[in-house]
Design a protein around this nucleic acid. Sequence first.
DNA 1: TGTACATCAGTGAACGCGCGTTCACTGATGTAC
DNA 2: TGTACATCAGTGAACGCGCGTTCACTGATGTAC
Lengths: 208, 208
Amino acid sequence: MKISKAQSQENRARVVQTAAALFRERGYDGVSVADLMLAAGLTHGGFYKHFGSKADLMAEATAQALAGKMREYEGLDMRGFVERYLSREHRDGRGDGCPMAALSGDAARQPAEVQAQFVSGIATMLAAVERGAMAAATPPAAARAQAIGLFSQMVGAVVLSRACADDPALSDEILDTCRTQILAALVPPSSAGGRAVSKRRGRGSGDA
Amino acid sequence: MKISKAQSQENRARVVQTAAALFRERGYDGVSVADLMLAAGLTHGGFYKHFGSKADLMAEATAQALAGKMREYEGLDMRGFVERYLSREHRDGRGDGCPMAALSGDAARQPAEVQAQFVSGIATMLAAVERGAMAAATPPAAARAQAIGLFSQMVGAVVLSRACADDPALSDEILDTCRTQILAALVPPSSAGGRAVSKRRGRGSGDA
DNA sequence: TGTACATCAGTGAACGCGCGTTCACTGATGTAC
DNA sequence: TGTACATCAGTGAACGCGCGTTCACTGATGTAC
C-alpha cells in the first residue's frame, strides 16, 4: 500500500525521533534497524526508502537529539541547567537526556558522519555554557575556561553515576556532591546566607 | 596438542591482558571472541577451556584493568595523577588508559558481573583520590567532596576530548583547560608565585 | 468531476556475514608402573 | 630411568542466530486526461 506524502513524512520523523531515544538508551550498536522500525510502528524493509544506511540515520538522530537538548537547555539559567543536568531524573532517563552523557563514550568508535555531530554538539554546548556563565556574572575572560570545566564535570558525574547505578547510595552521592559543589560556586541568585557574594569553588583546602 | 601447565596459564593470562586492552580500545561489543583469541596468538575454539562465557572474561578483564590502573596511579601524588590523566597520551591511548574513561558509558548496558566491577572500581578510585587530596593538604572534611568533583571532571574531560578528537584544537583545549584549572586549584608544591597558598578553584566570578 | 494509470512507501522473505558457543579431534604433557 | 597411557589445552569446522541490506511485490495515493 502506498501512503500519503504527509503520512510518509510523519513516519520518517517518527523513526528519527524513536532512534534518537533508543540510541541514547542502548547505544548505537544496541539498536538494530528491525528493533527501531518496530518501535516506530513499521517493518524493517521500509527503512531504506528513507535513509541511505544505518550510519546516516545515526548521524541524523544524533544531530536532532543534540539540537533538541540545546533548545531545552537554552531556556534555563545556569542554576536551572545545573540542577536539571545533575538530577536523578536525568541519570535515570537516558533516552530523553543529554546525548553527550549518553553517547560520548561510543562516539569515538562511530563513522565520521556521527563523530562530526559530536564535534559541533560539544562546540555549541560549550559556547552556550560560556554565555550562561557570563549572564551569571562571570567575567568574559574567565567564562570559557569555566564553561569547559563545568561541563566536563557535569558529563563526568552523570557518566559515573550511571556506571554505578547498581549502588544507589554511591550513584546519588556523586550526583548530589557535584550539584551542591557547582551550585555553591555559582554567584548566588541575589542573597547568599552569610557568605561572600563572589564565592569560589570549595575544592582547595580551607573549607572545613 | 596438549600444552604444559605453565604454558597454559601463560596463555590464559595473555588472553585476559589482551582483552583488557582491546575492550578499552573498541568497547565490549567491538571485540569478538575470535578477534581477541587471534590477537592473543590462539584460535577461538580454545576460549571456553579458560572462560565460561564472554561475559565472564569481560568481568575479569575489567577487574584486572581497574586494579592495574589503580596500582599505577597509587604511585603518583595528586599533581602527577592529574597531569597524567589529563594528558594527550591518555586521551590517545585508550587501550592502556583508565577503564572508567574508556568504558563507563558502556558499563550500564553490560551484564551484572561487569557492572559490579565498575561499582567497586569507582568506589576504590574515589577513596584513593580522597586520600591523595588529604595528602595534598585538603582538610579531611572536604576531601571526599573534592575527590568526587575532581574525578568527575577528569573523567568528563577525557570522555569529551575523545569524542571530539576530529577537532584537535577543541579536543586539546578541553584537556588543557581542565588540567590547568585543576592544577591551579591544588595546593602548590611548595612556593606559589605571588598567590595565596590555599587558593581555590577559579570557576566563580572575579578571576579575570 | 470521473476515470485510468503510474508512482512509490511500506511489506516480509531472503541475502551473506559475523557473532557466541559447541564439539569431535589432535598430540604433547604428565603420571602410573 | 624407561615405557604405556590417560589427560586436556588447543584446533578448526559447524551450530543457530541476529545483523544490515536487498528485492519482488502490494495497493492506496496522486496525477493526467
